[in-house]
Measured scan of single mutants.
Amino acid sequence: WKITIYDQENFQGKRMEFTSSCPNVSERSFDNVRSLKVESGAWIGYEHTSFCGQQFILERGEYPRWDAWSGSNAYHIERLMSFRPICSA
């Protein structure tokens, strides 16, 4: 599993790669995730830290803005603060 997060939209700004769970992006000096690329595996992104709040399934691909992973939710969530890989047995 591999995911790359960015602190600006369209894959700009600070970037960081992960191959395992991140319970709080702010502990990695990110205020928020504004864009991301899922390089391999599937991940679950969460609205809040500690894997809480609205969940987003993140499959392999590029997500240049928050609405790319938020989709058409009843209330739009511009925040992604934690994530972890989906492990299959």
Rank of each mutant, 00 (worst) to 15 (best):
C87T: 15
R84A: 11
A89K: 10
K14P: 02
I86K: 13
V38M: 01
F30R: 00
E17K: 07
S40G: 13
W1D: 13
V33T: 04
E78A: 13
G13V: 01
R65C: 13
I77L: 13
E59D: 05
F30I: 14
G13H: 02
Q55C: 08
G71K: 14
R34V: 04
N24D: 15
M16V: 11
S26E: 09
S26P: 08
N32V: 11
D67W: 07
Q12S: 10
S72C: 13
K14A: 10
H48E: 15
Q54P: 10
R65H: 14
F18H: 04
G61I: 03
A68D: 11
S29K: 10
E59S: 14
S72D: 15
V25A: 05
G71T: 13
S20I: 06
F56H: 05
K37R: 12
A89R: 11
S82Y: 03
V38A: 03
D7P: 04
W43D: 02
V38T: 01
F11C: 04
F11D: 00
G61A: 03
V38E: 03
W43R: 01
V33G: 01
I57A: 10
D31T: 08
R60E: 15
F51D: 00
A68F: 08
N32Q: 12
S70C: 12
N32M: 11
S72M: 14
E62G: 06
S82M: 02
G53F: 01
W66D: 05
A42S: 15
S72R: 13
K14H: 09
P23F: 05
S40Q: 14
S40T: 09
R60M: 13
K2C: 06
S40C: 09
A89M: 11
V25G: 02
D67F: 05
E17A: 11
Y63P: 02
K2S: 05
V25N: 04
D7C: 04
T19L: 07
M16W: 06
E47K: 00
R60C: 15
A68K: 07
I86M: 15
P64E: 06
D67Y: 06
F30H: 02
E62T: 07
F30E: 02
Q54N: 14
V33S: 00
Y75E: 15
E78K: 12
Q8W: 00
S20K: 14
W43Y: 02
P85W: 03
A74L: 13
G71Y: 09
Q55R: 11
N10S: 08
F18N: 02
Y46E: 02
E59M: 08
S72K: 14
W66L: 08
G13P: 01
P85C: 05
V33C: 13
G53V: 05
L36K: 03
R15S: 14
I44T: 06
G45H: 03
S20L: 06
S21L: 07
R15E: 14
F30G: 03
F51M: 03
I57D: 05
W66Q: 12
S35P: 02
P64K: 08
Q12F: 08
R84W: 02
R34T: 02
R84N: 04
F83Q: 00
S35Q: 01
S82C: 00
Y6K: 00
